[in-house]
Design a protein around this nucleic acid. Structure first.
Lengths: 150, 150
DNA sequence: TTCTAAATTAGAATAAAATTCTTTAAACAC
DNA sequence: GTGTTTAAAGAATTTTATTCTAATTTAGAA
């Protein structure tokens, strides 16, 4: 895999913030013509530096503005229980992120709900039916201060 | 603000996962012709349902694959200290997300570093120079299990 | 330094996509 | 039923992406 230069890095940073610039606009920003910029972006895509392009949606407008970080302890720490847990949480739409972590808990999940009522329903009915879970601990988000993606 | 229908929701879900489909491709997916799909997307953009379009980058390839959740307690809980903290962390590039939370700590930050050495340097030199911070607690990510964005 | 080869760029040409416009169809109120 | 509004389809146009060729730059060898 080749290495990337400063112009590649500029393009990545720009596209990470806004992927809707035209090739011509990007070319102007990095002081090149359109064709090398086009080829650089294709190369960055093919080499995996750019994984995908997505639209960021307004969580509030889509009734998903209530964010909770939910810590999980498993019942036991064997491979079967772990695999079962991963399988189960993959299907639950409210869980938008999940990490295997160090410390007192095994997993940290970011959960996206409409409101507290929805979250309570999620904990009771969805997490409640995941057999592998031993205990949970919820940390509520009062405000989003910084998000380099949103 | 008007409400959105099922086709709008389909388009949002598709674009949330991949914003590079052409209007013609999207039209086929939702059984419409190109022009109404184009107009629907423009409306969703103008009404704020779609906030922006971004490229997702490979953190590992860009030396940012070491993820840590860092809990923060402020020294004191007055408005000045809080504002100072927010101002300071905005400038620190390793902090990719930050939330004001309930519970024992005041803030939860997602930090993105190259490796443990980089993270240690970040805690010492960058967080270490933020006056408003009282104490910190680091939770290390061993594996990313689910990410509806990445 | 000078020459050669490889890589990169610019700019024109082409293909494809986005965007606009006009006509037609459907939904709704009266 | 008729008139009115809204949304859709399809054609026409504009813009953008993509390809291609020639010129330039760069890196390395002599």
């Amino acid at each position: 895999m080749e290495h990337i230069d400063d112009i590649d890095l500029q393009l990545l940073n720009i596209l990470h913030d806004n992927s809707k610039y035209t090739v011509k606009e990007l070319a102007k920003m990095v002081n090149l013509s359109a064709s090398p910029v086009f080829e650089r972006i294709k190369r960055l895509e093919n080499n995996g530096y750019i994984k995908k392009y997505i639209a960021l949606l307004d969580a509030e407008k889509l009734n998903r503005g209530f964010i909770v970080f939910c810590n999980i302890k498993l019942k036991q720490h064997d491979r079967n229980i772990g695999n079962q847990f991963v399988n189960d949480i993959m299907k639950i739409e409210e869980i938008v992120e999940c990490y295997n972590i160090s410390g007192d808990y095994d997993f940290l999940m970011k959960v996206s709900a409409k409101d507290m009522k929805h979250y309570q329903d999620f904990v009771f009915n969805k997490l409640g039916s995941v057999e592998s879970i031993g205990s949970t601990q919820s940390t509520f988000v009062m405000a989003e201060i910084k998000n380099m993606y949103g």
